[in-house]
């Protein structure tokens, strides 16, 4: 698993020399994503302070922390969704497979085809189930024929473990599904483009426990093929699905460690305070 690739870095001094003490194992060999000295500003207000972390291939990394700690902002800067926010400014190095995603010649559309996103509230398009899944392949020209497209749709729905539930009503509106099914539809829609990384922004916060359990199962299955970064409010969820956990506090990355370790023997006192419920 990804854990084995981790390199222990006890004293993590960022490359520029500014001392932001992130404790634990932030870096790894041959990362999928490597983020160095990332800062995000909303107009004058700084939301993320100098965050450096690697995301390994095919790992599930969970980001936890109290509300307003910047974990969602950080996640959204990984596929440049923050571009759509007025006055939002991103600094630092974001490298996907060694390529700077904030470089001028980086195409946002291509980036988002590589780094897909699942949102907090299920947001299927008000179109049929089929059209929802087919939309991505269609705009990116991934299918050569109708048969091809049908195959992609079926495959994506199967991988999102939704196929059996919807195969008889592919042409009914996606908005008619239950909340959990809608979220799995959104996941199917995302993997239909065959991205390398999937970002999930509190994907279960609008769902009931049973739907949540299904999504968590799904995340585990998907981690075999995709790199997944998930933001969650639920520490249990982080513990269940992720191999590594990053703890954010007031825009700073406090600790990154294997999930087990974060929840049993956290290195940083703030992490400990959070997971024992003293705040958050």
């Amino acid at each position: 698993m990804a854990n084995s690739e981790m390199i222990e870095s006890v004293n993590n001094v960022s490359e520029s020399g500014t001392e932001r003490q992130t404790v634990g194992a932030s870096f790894c060999d041959d990362p999928k994503f490597s983020i160095r000295n990332a800062s995000v500003f909303y107009a004058e207000k700084q939301a993320i302070f100098d965050v450096s972390v690697d995301i390994a291939r095919h790992e599930v990394i969970a980001m936890i922390g109290p509300s307003g700690c910047g974990k969602s902002t950080f996640l959204r800067s990984l596929n440049r969704m923050n571009d759509t926010v007025e006055d939002c400014r991103v600094e630092g190095g974001f490298h996907l497979d060694g390529q700077d995603i904030y470089q001028d010649n980086m195409d946002v559309v291509a980036l988002r085809a590589q780094v897909g996103m699942v949102f907090q509230k299920p947001n299927p398009f008000p179109k049929s189930i089929y059209e929802n899944v087919a939309y991505g392949p269609r705009i990116h020209g991934l299918a050569d024929s109708r048969v091809d497209l049908d195959e992609i749709v079926e495959d994506s729905l199967r991988r999102a473990s939704l196929w059996d539930e919807v195969k008889d009503r592919l042409h009914q509106p996606g908005t008619g599904l239950s909340g959990g099914q809608q979220q799995r539809l959104c996941i199917a829609r995302t993997i239909a483009v065959n991205p390398e990384v999937i970002l999930m922004d509190e994907p279960c916060s609008a769902l009931d426990p049973i739907a949540t359990a299904r999504i968590e199962e799904l995340i585990e299955e998907l981690s075999q093929n995709f790199t997944i970064a998930i933001v969650t409010h639920s520490m249990q969820q982080a513990a269940r699905v992720s191999s590594r956990t990053a703890y954010f506090h007031l825009g700073e990355l406090i600790e990154v460690n294997p999930t087990e370790m974060v929840f049993t023997t956290p290195e940083h006192e703030l992490t400990e305070a959070y997971i024992t419920g003293r705040f958050g």
């Binding site: 969704m81 759509t84 559309v109 988002r112 949102f119 947001n123 705009i139 959104c186």
Partner: peptide
């Protein structure tokens, strides 16, 4: 709803 725009943008729609 902005969520529809976000969904499409997140899929890589221009």
């Amino acid at each position: 709803p902005p969520s529809i725009r976000e969904a499409a943008l997140g899929m890589g729609a221009s």
